[in-house]
Design a protein around this nucleic acid. Structure first.
Length: 428
DNA sequence: CCCGCCTTAAACATGA
DNA sequence: CTCATGTTTAAGGCGG
């Protein structure tokens, strides 16, 4: 799995960003950078793959991806999001899901994807422009990206629906009641659970690259570069850290193992109860290990994330992953009236037509932002300011890490070259 | 063995 | 009535 650096705005992967991600995909598949990529395309060479040492110093793509990473974690503002996580296959690559996730010994297209349904749904939803999809579109996305399901028994759709209903990561959003555009509701990912889902994605089995950079070393660098401050200050930064972990795991950055961001917090599942929002999670200050969670509050399917939980409580700005992703979802197991008092929609979004408006500007998500920003939360101005600050900090932090990665890969390259020459001399 | 996560199946309700 | 959607329950596999 490549670094989670953003989201595409088009599931057809035809956006310029998707090209970049496709390039990344190629990088992962080939272990080296395609020479012919255009200048705007991110460039990288895998660390840890054989014959990947030639261009270790070129991390331009990574720098470029910094913005995408920031965009990913900071929500719906800015350019279309692109994520190699989901969008790496591009159009010119045979459709097989997020193939960059796959280890070199990846399975055939007809084998079952190594992702749980919740992750598949998450990918599908995040892949959508509005970050909201009707179940039918979720089916389609899964089918498009995982041909396995084309021939699989139809039960998988039931499983998808089951997951949507049961997994508190997913929230149902009523379609505008003014119009009837297909059956059913839209499904979104609860922003609070995005880090969890990303963490879960990260935990998927992939080949981990070889690396020699000590995690402790990285941690110290993080501290020196204020990344630590970031990760403790906001959920977005935490998400960014996880993304960086992902990068490390995938060999984009070198590290023996992921940074110790994850935790083994156990989530208690309770089918009978309504799904509660993790905003109720409370954490104690000053020590990431003192995470305190009411087990009754969480019945989440997906992997937990200490970072998410920590930040959920720490953040004075917003516990959500983005100030612009302040959703108000329809509580599961409760039917809400159509007056919009509890649901995702409001009076004003009755004209919002998902089918006709694939752009986020007028889509559900942004509409919801507009709606919820008027509620009891701090003023949007303040939050936007905070968002920008976080944005800047994130960029700075990511830049520091990238710089580190550049140094590291340079060293690796030099060492590798030296070894090769040494061996040649010995042979002589 | 227990527990939690996840999948699968199925029954049922609702609405288009 | 059919089909899609959504909820809920149950059972079983798997791994920690």
């Amino acid at each position: 799995m490549g670094p989670v650096i953003g989201m595409t705005s088009d599931k057809t992967a035809e956006t310029p960003g998707a090209e970049k991600v496709a390039a990344l995909s190629q990088i992962y598949k080939m272990g080296s950078l395609p020479e012919a990529v255009d200048a705007a395309r991110p460039k990288a060479t895998l660390v840890g793959n054989e014959s990947a040492d030639d261009e270790l110093t070129n991390l331009n793509w990574l720098h470029e991806s910094t913005n995408l990473l920031t965009n990913f974690s900071l929500g719906s503002e800015g350019p279309p999001m692109v994520s190699p996580l989901y969008d790496i296959e591009g159009d010119d690559v045979p459709s097989f899901g997020p193939s960059c996730y796959q280890s070199p010994e990846q399975k055939s297209a007809t084998s079952k994807p190594p992702y749980s349904f919740s992750l598949l749904i998450y990918m599908a939803i995040e892949h959508s422009p509005n970050k909201c999809l009707p179940v039918k579109e979720i089916y389609s996305w899964i089918l498009d990206h995982f041909p396995y399901f084309a021939t699989a028994p139809t039960g998988w759709k039931n499983s998808v629906r089951h997951n949507l209903s049961l997994n508190k990561c997913f929230q149902k959003v009523e379609r505008s009641h003014g119009k009837v555009n297909g059956k059913g509701s839209l499904w979104c990912v609860d922003p609070e659970y995005k880090p969890n889902l990303m963490q879960a994605l990260k935990k998927q089995p992939f080949s981990s690259s070889l690396g020699s950079l000590s995690p402790h070393y990285l941690s110290s660098v993080f501290k020196q570069n204020q990344v630590r401050t970031l990760k403790e200050s906001d959920i977005d930064a935490a998400a960014a850290m996880m993304l960086l972990n992902t990068s490390i795991e995938q060999g984009i950055l070198e590290c023996e193992k992921p940074l110790p961001l994850k935790t083994s917090l156990q989530r208690k599942r309770n089918y009978g109860n309504a799904f509660n929002h993790p905003s109720a999670i409370r954490l104690q200050e000053s020590d990431s290990s003192t995470t305190s969670i009411d087990p009754k509050e969480d019945h989440n399917y997906s992997a937990s994330s200490m970072a998410a939980q920590r930040c959920a409580s720490r953040s004075s700005v917003s516990s959500l992953s983005s100030v612009d992703e302040v959703y108000e979802f329809i509580p599961k197991s409760s039917h809400v009236g159509s007056d919009g008092s509890e649901g995702f929609h409001s009076e004003e979004d009755t004209d919002v037509d998902y089918e006709d408006d694939p752009l986020g500007d007028s889509g559900y998500a942004s509409q919801a932002c507009a709606d919820t920003s008027q509620k009891g939360q701090p003023g949007k101005k303040i939050r936007k300011q905070s968002c920008q600050e976080i944005d800047e900090e994130l960029k700075e932090a990511a830049g520091s890490l990238l710089h580190l990665a550049g140094i590291r890969t340079c060293l690796g390259s030099l060492i590798s070259t030296a070894k090769t020459q040494s061996q040649k001399q010995r042979k002589k």
